[in-house]
Design a protein around this nucleic acid. Structure first.
Length: 462
DNA sequence: GCCGTTTTCGGCCCGACTGTTTTCAGTCG
């Protein structure tokens, strides 16, 4: 049977692919739907249709129950799954393949799908490279760049070459960690994940196993976490409703829970002030239905100059704000450091989300003066996030101990976009333990009162 | 292709940035 794994993914530097332990129907179907979306994009399919499959892939991958066991008639109950996708899922359950995917694979030059995932190479250029140069693997692409074979091709200049080589280098350097994380069983424990980090994460000038913690301190555990402070709903790019996320959080036993959907400057999310206020009303109305304390927040965008989406007045209406970089990743260190510090000094900003914006195997960390960032966070009472997504691992585990020594506090958050994502907390806990964090270091391990005090950043109570 | 309907078709993930152009195509979040 042809699965995403056997379709040429995972070859070469591992830029693309799912060569880890793909054990569930949900994950296998999600991979095939994602591939189908990519193939549709590559072959010039309707962009809305492409997005439908992307969304369906997310919905299937983030669905908490086993799709292999769901009655066929219930498949369309999964949000984002309509008649067409349901039929493909059913076909996969019967035959182990999806014919439409196989058919499209045959229409795309070999390798184009893999090349399209190299940073700086999109679908158009992947087709161009595969078609004109016959390049089918990432290592061949690197070789082609180095030997000057991209020179003279329309649309490629020295900067593009540089960017491609950089992207390949990131993939190479992260391959072992990424593959080890993906190879983990679905129910991997904190200790399992910790073993992967111990094996694959290098700390500059230190013993990774015990560089953070003083003797006698108890390292943080999953059970210490009292709430998630960075989560999304289907108001932006999450796939689950506000009610659905809250119910799942409550089932995890949290005492508090923050909803932090994207802010307007991430234009594609189409957020508006009105939508945000309406969500706030909706969330306040749900307060009586849950034993948790609900916090209304947003994931703000740190613009190139360090400013964020709303003015002081509007921002003061939030209970909590995460602020993250989603653009201009390649600023020089001085500019980037100034940018971070401006955000950290903003009285409304409580947590810097996925601080270095790295994606394992996909995007390098930004260039920032870490010591200056840590000092500013410690001074202003701004937490750094330990983003628990295994695709991010950010703040990278190797930096956590140093940040702790500088007096930084942390928030271990899932950045959940689905119900399944909420279970990623264990990756963040493993990273935190790797860095020697104790409950005292982690604001979402604190009782509500202490958390709220931290969130005020020294401002008078509202 | 999915969704939500004024229930059968229109809306949906837009626009900044970059490098390569000579007026814009491709990529990205």
């Amino acid at each position: 049977m042809i699965t995403a794994r056997s379709a040429g993914y995972g070859a070469g530097t591992g830029l693309a692919g799912d060569n880890g332990a793909m054990t569930s129907v949900n994950e296998e179907v999600a991979a095939l739907l994602r591939e189908y979306a990519e193939l549709l994009g590559l072959t010039g399919g309707d962009l809305f249709r492409v997005r439908s499959y992307e969304k369906a892939a997310k919905a299937v991958g983030g669905y908490p129950d086993d799709l292999g066991a769901l009655p066929e008639s219930a498949l369309t109950k999964v949000p984002g799954v309509g008649k067409s996708v349901a039929a493909k899922i059913a076909e996969y359950r019967r035959t182990g393949t999806i014919k439409a995917v196989d058919d499209l694979r045959a229409k795309v030059p070999p390798g184009a799908l893999v090349l399209a995932k190299v940073p700086g190479v999109g679908p158009r250029r992947a087709l161009q490279i595969a078609g004109e140069l016959g390049v089918t693997r990432v290592d061949e692409l690197a070789e082609a760049v180095q030997s000057g074979r991209l020179r003279g091709m329309a649309g490629f200049g020295p900067k593009a070459e540089e960017r491609i080589l950089r992207g390949i280098a990131v993939a190479d350097s992260d391959t072992a960690l990424r593959d080890a994380l993906r190879a983990l069983a679905r129910d991997a424990t904190v200790d399992d994940i910790g073993a992967v980090l111990a094996a694959h994460v290098t700390v500059a000038g230190g013993d990774a196993a015990k560089h953070g913690t003083a003797a006698g301190e108890a390292l943080i555990r999953i059970a210490d976490i009292r709430g998630d402070l960075h989560t999304h709903t289907d108001l932006t790019d999450g796939i689950v409703s506000l009610e659905g996320m809250i119910a799942a959080a409550e089932a995890r036993g949290y005492a508090y829970y923050a909803v932090t959907d994207h802010a307007p400057n991430l234009v594609m999310q189409r957020m508006t002030s009105e939508k945000m206020l309406a969500q706030r009303d909706q969330l306040r109305a749900l307060a009586d239905t849950t034993g948790m304390v609900l916090l209304h927040g947003s994931e703000l965008n740190i613009a190139a100059d360090g400013s964020v989406d709303w003015d002081e007045d509007f921002l003061s209406g939030f209970d909590i704000c995460v602020a993250s970089i989603h653009s201009s990743f390649e600023q020089d260190r001085a500019t980037m450091t100034k940018r971070f510090i401006a955000a950290v000094e903003n009285p409304a900003v409580n947590i810097i989300g996925h601080p270095l914006t790295r994606k394992v195997g996909r995007r390098p960390p930004v260039d920032v003066d870490l010591d200056a960032l840590y000092a500013a966070c410690a001074r202003t009472g701004t937490a750094l996030e330990v983003n628990a997504s295994p695709d991010r691992m950010d703040l990278p585990p190797e930096h956590i101990a140093a940040a702790r020594r500088a007096g930084v506090r942390f928030a271990i958050d899932t950045d959940a976009h689905s119900l399944v994502d909420l279970t990623n907390l264990r990756f963040g806990i493993a990273a935190a333990r790797f860095g020697g964090l104790t409950p005292a270091d982690v604001i979402n391990a604190w009782p509500l009162g202490e958390l709220l005090e931290f969130l005020r950043k020294g401002r008078p109570p509202r």
